[in-house]
Design a protein around this nucleic acid. Structure first.
Lengths: 343, 343
DNA sequence: TACTTTTGTTCCATCGTTTGAACAAATATA
DNA sequence: TATATTTGTTCAAACGATGGAACAAAAGTA
């Protein structure tokens, strides 16, 4: 068999018309007759024609590729956001390139570089914990392609953003813990350079104040939020002269690590130590005790991010109004923090 | 500022040479003098030249994009494979497009379609549980681009494959359970159409025979391996007139579901019912009791898959020798199956 | 009938890079 | 010195699809 790929030209030859006419027929150009259009479609099918997307991208200056950068795919939060983004964008003829930064600034830069190299039509990203310098993201902005951040964003970048109200999240958690009778609430935070963790810290401190609880510096600990960080930090907390009676962790994995140490030390959860995580990862409901957590409505975040991208490509020149979309989170109360049995 | 992108032509104009010379200089063509090469690189830098990857892809018929299809990113097994694949391929100048099938045949077909449309240089995939028809994968083969399968593959496809020895895995599990004194061992399998589950079933049956244990049809149950499937099936197993005293599940999630039901029913694990999972997901070590599982060496799988791809693109015409790479798995014994305390 | 408008198509340049062939100049070989 | 080889570059044709301008034919209008 002639193993060459069929091109628009082959179709043209069969029908005795020009490639240009074929192209127009396939793109449903108004000036092409129905008769020709049908004939072209027929022949295209017969020859098993597959449009060369690369050629079209070169000519049109548009690849129909969208890059998505996430810190880790293994987190359910991110993977479900991606799923939603894919859903929506695939429908509109876009393909999604997913890359992971693994929370590393260096890897993130490499990802951006790679995506720009691939000439994606836009980037939807959540920043690595490590990332402080915004140079690479500014590079994206300078390229003039849409850049949408979610969850982990920076105000300074001045781009569209979708996320939850982190300040309020902390209030929800602290209010709940206080209701449960907790008085010395520790907070395991992420990198305080990142906006979201900064906001959660602010919320934590303000909420404590509202409840007339003192803020103790030694109960606020910054970390990388991995499971092993949780183990280490909980160890530390247990060694304090005055132990906390509750821990509000800014992630479920770090909370899980903390829980392990608590169990090892036979500390009763929630009676002796209440525990709250963040993100509502599936495992938080299956460990014992199940971990109270914050649900961030990831599908909604994914949806909004995708729709915002589409809006931007549709109207690239509406420079002014940035979209900052802030969703309201939800506290999912479970065994790890439920001291007061209400029945 | 003149917001046009710099092209090879601009560089040529500055230096008074032809675009062709510039292209060759940038590609380190041996016939271009060092002097010209340096000059070109210099000017390219000054003008902030970014090569147009699309144009080059069109001309060369190569996108330097590799598609990876996995059932779910949320499984640690798959996400760590991807991480490794990315590592290796990025190094070689490839970018990786990740897509999820969500275990759905339809979504998998759509993914393949999308990847072919994007004109990836190759596809590395693990099949969805649902997938039985191989038509779309055959389409990939017909395109002539490398196709490498891992974990979930099919012999009929006749392509490179990386995975573990599933037959042996079952032996390891059964041997271990028998050592622990189990006599009625149930097996929760995945879709028996898939090669890997078929092999595990074979291994299960043969191993039972080796130990002179009878194979009971009602103790072999096929499922989708989700957590909820585990709950349902364990419920069923408990209702049998003769309960099993051990369950070997072909996945950690399904094992977890089973464990939940066991705990609810106050059945002692491992004393009354031993439990073994598969894949060694991180959570298997953190639940109580920790679940015995099979470690599949995911990084190694990812590495081999990536290297095989590279080998194929390097020598596309070595038609004959397919690579079927079968790794030896490892049984990680934990509390859920450890009855005999050895100290 | 003469002229305008509409319709359907062809023509041709273009997107930016690559590559084999061609060619002149420089260098090596006999 | 004549001839062969090497070196450095230009030439020109791709890769496949696109879209505006041009153009002929058909249809509509006066």
């Amino acid at each position: 068999m002639g193993n060459k790929k069929t091109t628009i030209k082959d179709i043209a030859n069969v029908l005795g018309i020009t490639p240009s006419a074929v192209s127009k027929a396939l793109n449903n150009h108004p000036r092409i007759s129905e008769k020709t259009k049908n004939a072209v479609i027929q022949v295209a099918q017969n020859l098993n024609y597959q449009p060369n997307h690369i050629a079209s991208a070169l000519r049109k200056g548009k690849t129909n590729l969208v890059g998505v950068i996430i810190p880790r795919a293994s987190s359910n939060f991110f993977s479900s956001i991606i799923e939603k983004i894919e859903d929506i964008l695939n429908d509109k003829g876009y393909n999604v390139i997913i890359t992971q930064s693994n929370e590393s600034y260096k890897k993130e830069c490499a990802s951006i570089e790679a995506l720009l190299f691939t000439q994606v039509d836009g980037i939807i990203a959540s920043m690595a914990n490590e990332t402080v310098k915004l140079d690479f993201y500014n590079k994206v902005k300078k390229k003039g392609i849409p850049l949408i951040l979610f969850d982990r964003g920076e105000n300074d970048l001045n781009v569209d953003y979708v996320g939850i109200d982190d300040y309020q999240s902390s209030h929800m958690v602290i209010n709940h813990l206080v209701e449960q009778g907790c008085k010395r609430i520790a907070h395991i935070s992420g990198n305080s350079n990142a906006r979201i963790y900064k906001n959660r810290i602010r919320g934590y401190i303000d909420a404590l104040e509202q409840h007339n609880l003192p803020f103790k510096k030694e109960l606020l600990i910054e970390s990388n939020l991995r499971q092993k960080d949780g183990r280490k930090i909980m160890q530390q907390l247990l060694e304090l002269p005055e132990r906390p009676d509750a821990v509000y962790a800014s992630g479920d994995y770090v909370a899980l690590g903390a829980l392990e140490v608590l169990k090892q030390n036979n500390i009763k959860v929630p009676e002796d130590m209440a525990l709250v995580g963040f993100s509502n990862e599936p495992f938080s409901s299956i460990v014992t005790p199940a971990i109270t957590s914050i649900e961030q409505h990831s599908e909604k975040i994914g949806e909004l991010a995708a729709l915002t991208f589409l809006k931007r490509v549709a109207a690239p020149n509406e420079e002014v109004s940035l979209n900052k979309m802030i969703l309201t989170p939800e506290l999912i109360v479970r065994g790890s923090s439920l001291r007061v049995k209400t029945d």
